[in-house]
Design a protein around this nucleic acid. Structure first.
Lengths: 238, 238
DNA sequence: GAAGTCCTACTTGTCAGGCAACTTGGTTAT
DNA sequence: ATAACCAAGTTGCCTGACAAGTAGGACTTC
């Protein structure tokens, strides 16, 4: 079986490789929904691996909701939509186009989340957001970049939406973007650009949420993310 | 080891159960990033399962990017942000609140995608979208609900964004919502309500994209999804 | 005494074989 | 013809083992 390299250059396990192949078989439609997969013994033979490896690979697809297994009956590919995971594998971490696409998605989610937060936030939510804003200001005054405080500020906002899926997806994308930047350019700790500029944008967002103005909140969030993307761009290859 | 039931009532595999526990350990912070997990032998003993089961569980976390393993060294929990999958596990399929939260997220993604499509669409994109619109009309004329055509119409739009992440997430959420409705209420084939009403909303979206008007496109998409959510609500428990 | 080298215990990756639980389809008995 | 039954096949799980790689201590050498 072919042994492709992962993004770090390490050889993935046999199970990972086989899972990837099966995933492609399903995605391409060569394995139709409802169709039964070959038995574990057959797959073990055709791919030249042992049965535990096949089990591990099938287990991952099952984990992702792509197949279901019935003891004694076999493994069947699930219908599209049964998949319970959204996979965000980025080909080239340092590619500007890729990063722009991700940030664009983050912008859509977080801008809408901010608008929702403006409408639904309780006074306690607002207080929590304000506290994080102050914490960030304190960090800036101490001369720190305030990365953690920055993240906590945004987290407090998406928490205020009251929609756990918004919160989780937003956090996921946010972490992902920051992580990629960090690995692509390990030098800079200042992810958000000049802290003062970031803080002013944060204050605009906070103000809109305080006034319960969803349109202004969305606009402020979009402006903030647009600027953040522009600041990040300098770290990326053209 | 406790054997919880999954949403369908089947007992998940031991590996799935263990993976879930480890996932919680990480999410809760009891296992800090960079920290080493117990060895497979230790985990096998403490959880009362065999090593292959532990391997399968750890393999899934590795698959999701939550841990990394180094042969001879051990398994280490990755830093937040390294996770490459976004999980969308819904507790209660027929719960109105859950469904509303999901649809709200879908609305954010798809409305923004529609706005982007309006700005960036090529003439070929527009033609493809129009073709799907016509196909849906044909299906309606034949007295069919046109579910597949409906999905194809939306797919053509998100394709036109030129952003694969928008496309994939949109498709994922769309599939997910339709799937849940289908399983929660297996009776109805007409997911979208009256086809004529759906079609009129589709035409509004198409018109806005044709005029390259992002604001109108967003509004039309939001209107469409709001109505779709309202139509779905009758199938759900209060 | 300090530095470098080697070696051993440990950990993960993989394999082989086997038993239990379950499904399925055909066979047999009624 | 129908119902009960059985046997082959499949997944779920386990034990035991070996190979490959890591890490830390012991040993040698300067």
């Amino acid at each position: 079986m072919a042994q492709p390299r992962d993004i770090i250059g390490r050889a993935p396990s046999l199970a990972e490789t086989l899972a990837h192949r099966l995933r492609e078989e399903i995605a391409s439609g060569r394995l139709q929904p409802g169709e039964r997969l070959p038995t574990e013994h057959q797959m073990a033979e055709t791919y030249g691996v042992s049965r535990p490896i096949v089990r591990e690979a099938v287990g991952r697809l099952k984990h992702d909701g792509l197949v279901t297994t019935r003891q004694g009956a076999g493994a069947f590919v699930a219908e599209p939509g049964a998949a319970s995971t959204f996979r965000l594998d980025i080909a080239d971490l340092s590619d500007k186009v890729e990063m722009r696409a991700i940030v664009e998605l983050l912008m859509a989610v977080e801008a809408t989340a901010t608008a929702h937060a403006a409408v639904r936030r309780s006074d306690e939510d607002l207080a929590r957001i304000g506290a994080q804003l102050d914490a960030m200001q304190d960090a800036i005054d101490r001369g720190e970049p305030g990365v953690d405080e920055d993240m906590a500020f945004h987290r407090a906002i998406v928490e205020a939406t009251g929609n756990p899926y918004f919160r989780d997806l937003s956090q996921f994308l946010d972490h992902r973007v920051r992580y990629f930047i960090r690995t692509a350019r390990a030098n800079t700790a200042r992810l958000g650009g000049l802290p003062q500029a970031v803080q002013r944008e944060h204050e605009a967002i906070f103000g809109a949420i305080g006034k319960k103005d969803p349109v202004a909140a969305r606009a402020a969030a979009e402006e903030h993310l647009r600027n953040a993307a522009a600041r990040l761009a300098v770290y990326l290859t053209p």
